[in-house]
Design a protein around this nucleic acid. Structure first.
Ligand code: MN
Ligand code: MN
Ligand code: MN
Ligand code: MN
Lengths: 156, 156
DNA sequence: ATGATTTTGTAGCCTGTGCTACATTTTAGG
DNA sequence: CCTAAAATGTAGCACAGGCTACAAAATCAT
C-alpha cells in the first residue's frame, strides 16, 4: 500500500476526492433514494384528495404504474411511518405529518420543474426528469433555485 | 365512478395530469433508480483505475460507504451485466462497455455539477446533490444544460 | 520464514419493492 | 334484490442491496 500511494502521488493523472467525503456523498444519495417512494406517494395522495376527493388504492396504483398489491403494501408502510391512515374500503388519508410532507414535496417539485424550464429544458422533458431529480435536491440548492428564478423572471 | 367524475369536473380545484402520462413518469424514474447503483460503481472504478492503478473491492467499498461484502455482491452484478471483470485478488476492471458507460456517466456528472454552480448552488452542495441528481437527467436536459453553460460562460 | 494484518470471499439474514394468483368485500346495473 | 363487475386485501414468490460473522488467501513486517 505504501508503494501504491507513492506511485499515485508521483504519477497520478487524476485527483480523487477524500475517501470519507465521497462515502458521505453516496450515503446521502442512498438515503434520498430510500425516501423517494414515500415522497411520491404522499404527494400523489395529496393531489388526489385535493383534486377529486378520494385517494383509492387502485387509483394510486394506476397513476404510479404499479400493481394494486404493490400500492397497498406501500400504503401500509406510509401508515407504519405515521404519514397516512386508511379505513377498510374507505380510501387513504394523510396525517398532519403526511400532509405537511406533501406540501414540501410539491413545492420542491414545482421549483425543480421551473428551474429546468428556465435553463432551457423543454417542458415535457422537465416534467419527466423532475420526478426523479426532486428527491435529491437539498434545501440549500432549492434556495438557490428560487433566487435564480426570481432574478430571471423580473429581468424579462 | 360516474358521480365522482362529475363532482371532480364541477368542483375540482386542482388539475391532475393524465393517468398514463403520470404512470410513465414514475416508471421512468424507477428505471433510472435501478441503474443508479451500476452507474456509480463504474464511474468510481474508472476513477480509481485512472488515478492510481488499482480498483480493489475494499477501496470501492470504503469510498461508497458500504461493507466490503456488499461491494463484492454489487461487483458480481456488474460482471453479470457485462460491465466489469475481475480475477481473484487482482482487483476489478471495466469491459469496453463498462468503460464507455463510465465516460458518459462522468461527463454527465460534471455537467450537472457545473450547472448547479452556474445557477448559484454553493460548490460543496452542488457536489453533494449531483451524486443523486445525475441519474435522472435525460440527454435532452443535458443538452440544454450544455447550451446554458456555453451561453453564460462566454457572456462573462 | 513465519506470524500478524489486511484483503477477499462466502454464508445467512433482513428489508424494501416489485409481481401474480386467489379470496373477499363492496358497488353498480338490470 | 340479486348478480356481475370492480375494488380491496392477502399470500407467496423473486430479486436487489444492505448487514454481520466466519473462513481462506495474500501481503507485510519483523
Ligand atoms: Mn418523484
Ligand atoms: Mn413529484
Ligand atoms: Mn451518483
Ligand atoms: Mn457520480
Amino acid at each position: 500500500m505504501t508503494a501504491k500511494k507513492l506511485a499515485a502521488a508521483t504519477a497520478a493523472p487524476v485527483e480523487m476526492p477524500d475517501e470519507a467525503d465521497q462515502a458521505l456523498r453516496f450515503e446521502k444519495a442512498r438515503a434520498a433514494q430510500a425516501s423517494a417512494l414515500l415522497e411520491d406517494y404522499v404527494e400523489l395522495i395529496d393531489d388526489l384528495l385535493a383534486s377529486g376527493g378520494e385517494a383509492r388504492p387502485t387509483d394510486i396504483a394506476r397513476r404510479l404504474g404499479v400493481s394494486h398489491a404493490t400500492a397497498i403494501k406501500s400504503i401500509a408502510r406510509l401508515k407504519r411511518e405515521g404519514l397516512a391512515t386508511s379505513k377498510l374500503y374507505r380510501g387513504v388519508f394523510l396525517t398532519p405529518e403526511g400532509h405537511s410532507l406533501a406540501a414540501r414535496v410539491r413545492a420542491r417539485h414545482r421549483l425543480v420543474v421551473d428551474l429546468l424550464i428556465a435553463v432551457g429544458v423543454p417542458r415535457q422533458c422537465a416534467e419527466l426528469d423532475a420526478e426523479g431529480i426532486e428527491h435529491h435536491v437539498s434545501d440549500a440548492a432549492l434556495a438557490a433555485f428560487a433566487r435564480f428564478l426570481k432574478r430571471h423572471s423580473t429581468a424579462s
